[in-house]
Simulated assay, not measured.
Amino acid sequence: MRPTRHLAATCLALAAACPPAIAAEGASARYDFLANTLWYVPTGTLPAVMLDPAAGTYTGIVDQTVWSIESYTAGYFHGIAAVLLKAAGRPIAPVQCMRMLGSVTPDGDVQVSFVPKADTDAANATYGTGKLAFDGRRWHFTMQMGSGGASLVAHWSYMDRCTAGEACASRLPGTGRPIEDLVSRCR
């Protein structure tokens, strides 16, 4: 790892301002808009699949994941994720709260790690990879992830930004709830 990239990550972790030379060497300032944003799974990519390893059964589920990106600096971002999984229209468990840490390259390649908020180490981390791209109108993440535990979940999805006044703000797909309802459970 080049020393300046390590320093950029340190600036982010300490919520400190990075010197301009470090910020310029990392991802371009074109991603500065990520700070203080909310992202959600649109209706078309809510379906996911869950494996119960003990029973050997697969179940189609709905996975609404919300990202609250709190900070972005020099190619790195962090925040919280709120996850609501449903099967047959009913929640499988309460909203899961996770801390998230991610990176985005100048080309838009994304890697994100999620750790349950209650955990004190990263042994139960979930990892996602994807791409951040502009479609001529809006920015979108295209993501893939897999998580483990008593069951396994696999999900690919678009992540769209949600801003005040949009339908997602008052009625989040797959939940019928305001987006802030999920996020506030995890703050």
Score class of each variant (00 low, 15 high):
T57M: 13
T57C: 05
Y58L: 15
T59R: 12
G60K: 10
I61G: 05
I61E: 03
V62A: 05
D63Y: 10
Q64V: 04
T65R: 11
T65D: 10
T65C: 08
W67G: 07
S68Y: 08
A74M: 03
G75D: 03
F77I: 03
A81H: 07
V83R: 12
V83D: 14
L85C: 03
A87E: 15
A87F: 08
A88L: 11
A88H: 08
G89C: 05
P91C: 00
I92D: 02
V95I: 09
Q96A: 12
Q96H: 04
C97I: 00
C97R: 06
C97D: 07
M98E: 13
R99G: 04
M100W: 03
L101K: 04
T105P: 01
T105Y: 05
D107W: 01
D107C: 00
G108V: 04
D109Q: 12
V110S: 06
V110N: 10
V112R: 00
V112M: 07
S113E: 08
F114G: 07
F114A: 11
V115H: 01
V115I: 13
V115Y: 01
P116E: 06
P116W: 01
K117Q: 15
D119R: 09
D119W: 06
T120M: 12
D121P: 02
D121L: 07
A122N: 11
A122V: 09
A125M: 15
A125T: 14
T126Q: 13
Y127V: 14
G128N: 09
G128V: 07
G128S: 12
T129P: 02
K131V: 10
K131Q: 14
K131S: 14
A133E: 11
F134Q: 08
F134T: 06
D135F: 02
G136N: 08
R137M: 10
R138W: 11
R138E: 15
R138P: 08
W139Y: 15
H140R: 13
F141S: 07
F141G: 08
M143A: 10
M143V: 11
Q144S: 15
M145L: 14
M145D: 13
M145N: 11
M145Q: 15
G146N: 07
